[in-house]
């Protein structure tokens, strides 16, 4: 596990939150931008029912109207992120799909103020085009924070979905690390490639001290490991 965000609670236990990496953050951003782009397209075609050729119509408007539209778009983008992060407890649509969440650097929920700051500075992070400032800051920073996060005092953490059911059938008393490895293999068995099912299964069986036939198939290995865990 990477070095996470350590939060000291008054209960004298340090809570350790996993930091979201650059990949999932970028992916969440792409989803949000795609969504906003789609909304823009809908707006464009919606407008084209009323006005023919909205782009030229907009260019023909007075400079005041154009300035107001530009300001409106900027504020709209800002409000989109800030509003969602505040009402969904640190998540926008993309962040929700990628299961990441904005929290303050002490682990508490993001506030209106800090969300407003980090989303206002999105513009600076985006400079000059396609996010280079933000990406470099995220690469350099140990907790993958961009400039906006640094100024707002926020961090993105992963919101993992963990199912504890896989521990419940186990009745054997093997060492914790072996148990973790074996149950994790069993619960993810279906997701592996057939070759990986066999390769990892063989290694795991050897580690657990299960004697297997050299010609054993992946499913036989899985059943053997499952049986091993359920030995009282």
């Amino acid at each position: 596990m990477n070095e996470g965000l350590q939060v000291a609670t008054p209960e004298r236990v340090a809570v350790d939150l996993p930091i979201a990496g650059l990949g999932s953050r970028a992916m969440a951003y792409v989803i949000d931008v795609g969504l906003l782009g789609a909304a823009g397209l809908v707006l464009y075609f919606g407008l084209s029912f009323a006005v023919t050729d909205p782009v030229n119509a907009a260019l023909a408007l007075s400079s005041l109207a154009r300035t107001l539209i530009a300001v409106g778009v900027f504020v709209g983008l800002w409000v989109y992120w800030t509003l969602l992060e505040v009402i969904w407890n640190g998540q926008s649509v993309g962040k929700r799909l990628l299961r990441i969440r904005v929290v303050k650097s002490d682990g508490s929920p993001v506030t209106v103020f800090s969300s407003a700051v980090r989303n206002l500075l999105r513009v600076v992070d985006f400079l000059p085009a396609c996010y280079p400032v933000g990406l470099i800051t995220m690469l350099v920073d140990k907790r993958h924070r961009r400039l906006g996060d640094l100024l707002a005092g926020t961090v993105l953490v992963r919101d993992e979905q963990i199912d504890l059911a896989r521990y419940e059938q186990v009745t054997s008393t093997i060492a914790v690390n072996q148990l973790e490895l074996a149950t994790s293999y069993l619960s993810r068995f279906e997701q592996f490639e057939p070759a990986a099912q066999l390769r990892i299964g063989l290694k795991l069986a050897a580690k657990l001290g299960i004697s297997t036939a050299p010609s054993a198939t992946a499913v036989e290995l899985r059943d053997a490991i499952r049986a091993h865990l359920q030995v009282p």
Binding site: V7, V15, L17, G107, S108, V157, D159
Partner: peptide, 9 residues
């Protein structure tokens, strides 16, 4: 970790 962090928050 996650449960405690959520409740703490």
């Amino acid at each position: 970790n996650q449960l405690c962090a959520r409740t703490y928050a």
